[in-house]
Nucleic acid binder design. Structure first.
Lengths: 270, 270
DNA sequence: CCAATTTGTCTCATTTTTTGAAATCTTAAT
DNA sequence: ATTAAGATTTCAAAAAATGAGACAAATTGG
């Protein structure tokens, strides 16, 4: 099929993860690929852009757009531009309302955000991937943290926490398959340095990452435990300049206490 | 086509809105219908349930499930059950981050929620429909407000506010096409009573709906203005027993002030 | 522990949908 | 008014989805 070939050839392919298993349903996959092409970097697309990006003819592109628009997953942004539709918000609400962790964590994260004003995040480790469950934006920052969908293992405080507190087998597996990438001058790239970091994190019970992922950005993260296992981590991040001395200490206390409260809440009813 | 016929015949059809325009892309539509079948009332489905609900054969059903699962829109919930996947959360984040109204409203709503602890909502009127842009759950309530996706016009404080402050033409159009439904003993069902309500709301600048939509639930709503028009409304709702005297007055002040602040923020940069 | 039930995968001929080029209509911009 | 770009429509050819059933794997239950 022509369009499909063109699509694979298209360098910046839409396949977000390493390599999605063979699909069984091409048409639906395409519709979804269009949806998932929407990102914080590109939250608005024109039909022409979608057509170009996927190597599709115009008529086909409009068919997909209309399908997605008719069910509220896409919506018009002005004329001839399309953004995500309200059904996306609805689905997320359903997902959040049902997630037992998010349910108990939400108010705690909200309070944390209210106290310090910086960005607050909740991550989950699923196998060797890290996914963002919740993200409350900083109230003051003009520039938001870069929305890296694939949180890289060796950097980022929350990823390190998840790694440090993961079961030994998982941790070693991940470490053996990880090739550290140097994001900034301060990223720790040797396995030795990384192991030392993890040890420190395990000992103190939280992680502080200073400018390892982003220049000028600091992150503080703490582990959440449920059933003896650490699958989630709370973190807070923002301009490195803001995390110093007393305030940094307060943030660390805030983040660790939030994590502890969530752990406790999960232990209670669960 | 057989399955399609079966699907339409299936009483509780998946078509959320009145009647979606003729689709152009059957396969993608199906995948989306499955996704949109997820609701707060049914956040987890088994393959068998999906097959039964849409009148599909098992093999086809699994194909769709896998397609959705492979791209993270669905995820496993235990064995042989499926829930919404993390990509749904990601998409919603993208949508929220890009929405100019949500951006400025989020912190205000969050604060409102923090102050009173009850459920806070942000609605938008799009033509004659009301869509929920944001919804922060009550921190204490054990029972959440019913998640009515189709907010009915004559009831619900926020819908009334949106109606009261809508351009006259729109309002009359909506009113003429509205057949009030009696939700509770206190729902106002005559056009006359409804008009009187709207007048009151316009005069005082906010709406208080006591047990009109849900027995035992009260809602307080206020209009948000941008470009002289009211397209959005903030509201707060919870157990009727909690909204009395001084606290009710405080809530009204909180909600109206939140709405005013959002209006102002929209006027500023926009 | 084995049998029964349910879940999930796979195959393949048949049917249905999707595709894409171009004509056509619409809307905006110059 | 003229041009350009957006959007829809048509139709035959091409590709993909379908669905029945065979089968394997995992659960369940007695």
């Amino acid at each position: 099929m022509k369009a499909r070939a063109a699509r694979s050839a298209d360098a910046a392919a839409p396949d977000t993860e390493k390599s999605r298993p063979r699909s069984v349903n091409t048409t639906a996959d395409r519709a979804i690929d269009i949806l998932l092409a929407y990102s914080s970097d590109k939250p608005v697309w024109s039909a022409a852009e979608i057509a170009a990006h996927f190597g599709m003819p115009r008529s086909t592109t409009y068919r997909y757009i209309n399908t997605l628009r008719n069910c509220g997953l896409l919506a018009d942004e002005g004329s001839s531009l399309y953004r995500l539709g309200h059904k996306v918000l609805h689905l997320a609400r359903v997902a959040k309302m049902h997630d037992p962790v998010l349910r108990v964590a939400a108010p705690v994260l909200s309070e944390l955000s209210g106290t310090f004003g910086d960005a607050v995040l909740l991550h989950e480790r699923v196998g060797s991937e890290v996914i963002t469950l919740e993200r409350i934006e900083s109230r003051m920052a003009l520039v938001t943290l870069s929305q890296s969908k694939l949180l890289p293992w060796p950097a980022a405080a929350s990823a390190k926490v998840l790694l440090a507190f993961a079961p030994a087998a998982d941790r070693e597996d991940i470490l053996s398959r990880t090739v550290p990438i140097r994001y900034t001058g301060k990223t720790h790239t040797t396995h030795k340095a990384l192991l030392a970091d993890l040890k420190t994190i395990t000992r103190q019970g939280y992680a502080v990452g200073i400018e390892e992922l982003d220049e000028g950005a600091t992150g503080i993260a703490a582990p959440i435990f449920s059933d003896q296992e650490c699958r989630y981590a709370v973190s807070m991040g923002g301009a490195a300049a803001k995390f110093h001395g007393k305030r940094l200490a307060a943030v660390v206390r805030g983040v660790t206490s939030a994590a502890a409260r969530i752990s406790k809440a999960l232990a209670g009813p669960g």
